[in-house]
Design a binder for these strands. Structure first.
Length: 998
RNA sequence: GGGCUCGUAGCUCAGUUGGUCAGAGCGCACCGCUGAUAACGGUGAGGUCGGAGGUUCGAAUCCUCCCGGGCCCA
């Protein structure tokens, strides 16, 4: 063995080489579950609640994910962001509870349960189906809870909120009661998909689309007052003029209330020869060829044209072909020229768009003196409010037959069983049928009976956007302040003034949605949900149902005790136990008939079969969780994906404003959606979805969390397995920096000297030391990160942490100080000073990184402070304070110069063919003695070279080739003090001293 | 089709009110160290700032249009 190698070995044992039990390899997949167990055993969440919180409460409110399926990447992002908020607020000194919640009711679960039950469901009572749904929801709450905990989120998983809990349900009903009290709830007809076979409303998820053959018809509606037609149409005087509409559902014609036209396109008046008669018909010019070709009309002539909007402006009315009614032509923005005639038959009782046109234009009946009807409407140039409630006409009964409001030849006919034919035949007889043909089209069918469904207007419950809050109509009488702001106005005002949005454009989005949203339909005709606590009058009494604030609160209080299944099992009298009917009568809140019948008539009431829209339940969580549990209201922060501007945010804002006048949140933070690495939407069917479980198994939670912290969550987030691998490498860099810090503290006692420890006291004399510089950098890091945490800018936190570990520590400070840590005598003041700084840095870094890497931080905390540190977990600690150790103002200049020096050394070494930087010295010009305060050894160490000389006489950087100078066998430096020592080895002065040889 | 929004080096992102703003980190290439070693250090290459017009003495930054994504509606 060569001599030099022997020497190496012998001196290696004399060095203070780093040592630590904190492993380089994280082994997160095994170790994170152990950390979870440790936290659990410690009762960490409860300890946090019991701890001191110098800055008081910070109210964060978790939005409830749907209790269905495994968590996906969106949950990972959302929950990790939330956890970083909660942990950083906690370390910043706030009391920040995290109550996780789940949305448990609703169609997806009911749908799945019904599918699993199959035909068995037909014989089951609603509460039996509900029991199955509950079991199903519980299963997924449990599963998701476990998965979310595995992400190292620290929340009150023992006491989550579930929207199906009786207490939660009662609190939702109390919100409803308050809205009733404010006059914001009304009942009206609205078209829904209706299954004739099962006589029930269907949700979109319960529809299946099949092709079906139907008769499509071109129908002529005669203009009532041709003189009102725009002159440009050049309508012949004294002759009947017809609008031509097209529909694939002739059975809906009795409910026709208007014809909708497009705004700008050109309509033409044609004279045609049809069935041996000359006629004048109006339709869109672009569609003339297609329409006349279909009808086999070859002989037609354009007489004049006008724009769609002119037809509305001239207040055109037409005669219904078989109902005793005239109805208007209106403009609607969804009318296209892709098919039909450009004139759209509008039956608000039978179509969603038709319904909206009806609402927007305020279509309603006016009974004329002669018994005929006029469909009146609110013209754009009129300021009349839309009638309330909106009057939808729907002549179709639940069993799919026409009622008695239609002509006798249609009464009792099933709309899909003869309805179409009778209508078509009648049109033909009266000459109003221009053309009929069979078409194949995709048509919705009931998923269970496989029969075609219809749109049918049914009674639904709404929250009004446009009535003054606190103003109500009851039995024709207005009560309260008619000048109070509406819910829409309150929402817009809160959006403008009371809420901060992160990112700021959330405000625009919320504003736009509030401006345009229709009234909120609260009711669903399903089983798995919270019943709408309304009682319908006994059959035959055509009057108001019973729903007052008092009656709703009485039901709420009873459901609070028994759960919402009670609604399905109990009698109305039992449900209304405790209801003060007399008080309501005194305030004239109760329908006349009930006032006369009294409480003895309760059991004649019929319980409503409707349940609440699940959004109403989750939208009441500010009451059911924050106020119910005394957590504080309003919340400081709601944090969800940007889809929730329309969802949870808006639908929490509205009820809270209605009930309390306040927004339920002061700040709203939204994040974007996951897309694949090409920016495309993630989908299971697209095969580009990543499983959370896979990521956890491959990388561990802390790596996933590091990835989250590296994102700009405002925008779409590209995801790829590869990105997590890169995050893993960055994680290792941070971990290794921590490890190296820890490993140089193995012989360091952080207590001060007077407690027999090694801590160094910094004074002004140390201002030019490397350690003072490092501590000043740490102060900067503390400032940057705590402010970024405060502003919820986790990406900024990550950047600062990573640069500090990578650049400030690893490449600069630790590279420069390793020589003294290894080679100085263990107790040398210079080494102890550096260890003091390193200890402070390690401690601070662990605290600062804890919200992002909770497991790794806690692991390092134990490694730094021993097995029983105080506090026992870093998560019970506080963010560090700046040390404000004295530091030379010249340091930034030195660090800048260092780059220049390094570059010079690199170039010169290449030129001189020198491999090892320790074979190099540097002469630095310092004409004004700017650098005199700095130790030349510190400066040399900063460059990783053996020696640095300051020269007042040169003006150029000069690399010194030291290869011919003796090399210290212990430190490998050629620092100019190396000589043969008493043991025959070549050592520098410092190393000789460390070994007691000088 | 409408509302909101995004498009800067291979990747993730910074770029305040238009004028050293063309940057950082990762990755990559090359080199060094071998006493942080499945670690560590140094140097370097890479972009006509989605495209086209326009405003301006001057635009990644303002306006218009177009292309391509995303969320929410229709």
């Amino acid at each position: 063995m060569p001599e030099s190698t022997e020497n190496k070995k012998s001196f290696k044992s004399t060095l203070n080489l780093p040592k630590t039990a904190f492993p380089m390899k994280a082994n997160l997949v095994q170790n994170e579950p152990a950390t979870l167990k440790r936290w659990d055993k410690l009762g960490l969440y409860d300890k946090l609640r019991a701890a001191d919180h110098p800055r008081g409460p910070y109210v964060f409110h978790d939005g409830p994910p749907y209790a269905n399926g495994s968590i996906h990447l969106g949950h990972l992002l959302n929950k990790v962001l939330k956890d970083m908020v909660v942990r950083s607020k906690t370390l910043a000194g706030y009391d920040c509870p995290y109550i996780p919640g789940w949305d448990c009711h609703g169609l997806p679960i009911e749908h799945k349960v019904m599918q699993d039950l199959g035909d068995a469901a037909k014989d089951m009572e609603p509460f039996q189906v509900r029991r199955k749904c509950k079991t199903y929801a519980e299963k997924f709450v449990k599963l998701q809870s476990k998965q979310m905990q595995r992400l190292l989120t620290l929340a009150d998983y023992d006491n989550p909120y579930l929207t199906m809990d009786p207490v939660y349900e009662a609190a939702v009903l109390e919100v409803f009661a308050d809205l009733v009290d404010k006059g914001l709830v009304y009942r009206a007809l609205k078209p829904v998909h209706w299954s004739i076979a099962n006589q029930t409303a269907l949700a979109d998820a319960e529809l299946e689309y099949y092709d079906r053959e139907d008769t499509s018809v071109y129908v002529l509606f005669e203009i009532a007052e041709p003189s009102n037609l725009p002159d440009s149409l050049k309508a012949p005087h004294g002759e009947p003029i017809h609008l031509m509409i097209w529909t694939t559902t002739p059975w809906t014609l009795p409910a026709n209330m208007a014809v909708a036209v497009a705004y700008a396109p050109i309509y033409g008046l044609y004279s045609v020869s049809h069935c041996g008669q000359d006629k004048h018909v109006l339709l869109a010019v672009d569609l003339e060829e297609r329409v006349f070709n279909a009808a086999g009309v070859t002989n037609y002539e354009l007489q004049g044209v006008c724009a769609g909007t002119h037809l509305q402006e001239t207040h055109l009315y037409y005669k219904h072909p078989f109902m005793d009614r005239i109805a208007p032509v209106v403009v609607a923005d969804y009318v296209t020229l892709e098919e039909g005639t450009g004139m759209v038959h509008t039956a608000p009782g039978h179509g969603v768009e038709d319904y909206q046109t009806g609402r927007k234009r305020g279509l309603h009946f006016k009974q004329e003196d002669d018994g005929s009807q006029t469909v009146a409407w609110v013209r754009p140039d009129q300021s009349e409010p839309v009638p309330y409630p909106f009057d939808v006409y729907c002549p179709v009964l639940p069993d799919g037959t026409y009622d008695r409001t239609v002509p006798h030849w249609l009464q009792g006919v099933g709309v899909l069983e003869g309805g179409n034919e009778r209508v078509v035949d009648h049109l033909k007889e009266t000459g109003n049928l221009f053309h009929a043909e069979l078409i194949d089209h995709s048509y919705p069918h009931d998923w269970r009976s496989k029969t075609p469904v219809i749109f049918r207007a049914t009674e639904q419950w709404f929250v009004t956007m446009d009535f003054p809050v606190g103003f109500s109509f009851f039995e024709g009488q207005g009560h309260g302040d008619a000048t109070a702001p509406t819910l829409r106005q309150m929402g817009l005002e809160a959006t403008e003034k009371d809420i901060r949005f992160f990112p700021e454009w959330g405000r625009n989005r919320m504003r736009g949605m509030l401006e345009s949203r229709p009234d909120w339909c609260l009711s669903r005709q399903r089983a798995w949900g919270l019943p709408i606590p309304v009682f319908l009058p006994p059959e035959g009494i055509e009057v108001e149902p019973l729903y007052t604030a008092r009656s709703v609160r009485a039901v709420a209080s009873n459901l609070r005790k028994h759960g919402s299944d009670f609604w399905f099992k109990a009698t109305p009298a039992e449900l209304l136990e405790g209801y003060d009917l007399a008080a309501d009568i005194a305030e004239e809140q109760v329908p006349q008939w009930l006032e006369q019948a009294g409480s003895d008539a309760f059991n004649e009431l019929e319980k409503s079969h409707d349940i609440f829209d699940v959004w109403f339940e989750s939208g009441s969580s500010w009451n059911a969780v924050l106020r119910e549990r005394g957590l504080g209201f309003p919340a400081d922060l709601y944090l969800e994906g940007s889809d929730q501007h329309r969802g949870w945010f808006q639908l929490s804002l509205l009820p809270a404003l209605g009930v309390t006048g306040q927004s339920p949140f002061k700040n709203v933070l939204t994040h974007g959606f996951m897309v694949d690495k090409d920016g495309r939407k993630m989908s299971k069917s697209g095969g580009n979805a990543l499983e959370v479980d896979t990521l956890l198994k491959d990388f561990g939670a802390d790596v996933c969390r590091w990835w989250v912290s590296s994102l700009n969550p405002d925008n779409d987030i590209k995801v790829d397995h590869e990105f997590f691998r890169l995050a893993g490498e960055e994680y290792r860099k941070v971990r290794n920096t921590l490890r190296y810090l820890l490993s140089n503290l193995y012989d360091f006692d952080p207590r001060p000297a007077d407690q027999s420890g090694h801590a160094y006291s910094f004074t002004d004399d140390d201002a030019a030391s490397l350690d003072a510089w490092a501590l000043s950098q740490l102060d900067g890091l503390i400032h940057t990160t705590t402010r970024a945490y405060e502003a919820l800018q986790f990406r900024k936190v990550r950047d600062a942490l990573f640069n500090f570990c990578n650049d400030t520590m690893s490449a600069t400070y630790l590279a420069a100080t390793k020589d003294r840590l290894y080679c100085d005598a263990a107790d040398a003041p210079r080494r102890r000073r550096t260890q003091t700084a390193i200890h402070r840095i390690a401690d601070a870094l662990i605290r600062l990184v804890a919200p992002v890497l909770p497991h790794t931080a806690d692991e390092a905390w134990l490694a730094l402070h021993g097995d029983t540190p105080d506090p026992i977990s870093v998560h019970l600690a506080a963010f560090p304070q700046p040390s404000d150790a004295p530091v030379s103002e010249a340091w930034p200049g030195v660090i800048k110069s260092r780059d220049v020096w390094l570059k010079h050394i690199e170039d010169a070494r290449q030129h001189a063919n020198i491999d090892n930087p320790l074979d190099v010295g540097l002469r630095v010009p310092d004409p004004d003695n700017q650098l005199a305060a700095f130790s030349a050894d510190d400066l040399a160490d900063l460059c990783g070279i053996s020696r640095l000389e300051l020269s007042a006489t040169t003006d150029q950087l000069e690399m010194l080739d030291l290869r011919d100078q003796p090399r210290c066998e212990r430190s490998w430096k050629r620092d100019g003090t190396v000589q043969q020592r008493s043991d025959a080895s070549n050592l520098s002065q410092r190393d000789a001293k460390a070994l007691g040889l000088a």
